[in-house]
């Protein structure tokens, strides 16, 4: 169970999040949508302690974590894994070494066992053939799948995805969607996905929150979003250039 309560965050004079509150239920695939620059990524970075909010509370499984320091954040980060927008693999390590690193650090495995386990985990995302390649040699979609395998090594209960399908070709994007859906259905992981990819939103989301001008515009199921008569939401989910939304 995860809850954001009255989160406010500004960078200098620019107020990015202005009183954002919502809950995420265990085991659901929850989407955070909105135009670029509306603070979606900023919001989920609060959850893993990469940013600290100006005011508000973040409740994770009965703990208020918004004021945790780097040390207290450790267990939270093992519970909440994050997949970055650009995958952000370690360039100087092979894919297998990338996945093996958290295994080595958190599961008390020696280097050899960790690599063997890493290759097993890469096969789950169909990347075992590229285990010994370096990330810069791979395409975006492949890197993203390795990043997902790396995030899952700590056996998290929550996984945060920052724009998982942006900059991917349509086929790779749908594969990543399938992977995210499988996480919820097979492993019971709660996925929180930041996205503005319409096909992902309507194919795999359980519930959606839409942010607009630093506030929550609407929370609901995909069906409720399609049925709404709110002009801004209609403009967004139909991808029209003209409409009531200002950027």
């Amino acid at each position: 169970m995860l809850a954001f309560k009255n989160i406010k965050k500004s960078f200098g004079p620019k107020q990015v999040l202005n009183d954002v509150s919502f809950d995420v239920k265990a085991g659901e695939c929850f989407f955070i949508i909105g135009a670029s620059g509306v603070g979606k990524s900023v919001l989920i970075k609060h959850l893993v302690g990469l940013l600290a909010c100006d005011s508000g509370e973040i409740w994770l499984d009965g703990e208020e974590i918004s004021r945790f320091d780097e040390q207290q954040m450790g267990p939270v980060r093992k519970k909440c894994a994050m997949v970055f927008q650009h995958a952000t693999l370690f360039d100087s390590m092979t894919c297998a070494e990338n996945v093996a690193l958290p295994l080595r650090k958190h599961k008390d495995m020696n280097a050899k066992d960790a690599l063997a386990e890493a290759k097993k985990r890469l096969s789950v995302v169909h990347m075992q053939a590229f285990a010994d390649r370096y990330p810069p040699e791979l395409g975006d979609g492949m890197r993203k799948r390795v990043a997902i395998a790396r995030a899952l090594t700590v056996d998290p209960t929550y996984v945060l995805f920052d724009e998982p399908t942006t900059s991917l070709d349509p086929v790779s994007a749908r594969r990543v969607d399938t992977l995210i859906r499988e996480l919820c259905d097979k492993l019971g992981v709660t996925s929180i996905v930041v996205s503005h990819d319409l096909s992902s939103i309507f194919s795999i989301a359980d519930r959606i929150v839409m942010l607009y001008k630093g506030k929550v515009l609407k929370i609901g199921t995909p069906a409720e979003f399609k049925a709404t008569d709110n002009g801004i939401i209609q403009q967004f989910i139909n991808g029209r250039a003209e409409g009531p939304m200002d950027l």
């Binding site: 893993v48 970055f84 690193l101 958290p102």
Partner: peptide, 13 residues
């Protein structure tokens, strides 16, 4: 390229 943040998120100092 946020690789340092990626380490922190993996709970690695």
């Amino acid at each position: 390229t946020e690789q340092i943040d990626a380490l922190r998120v993996l709970a690695i100092d």
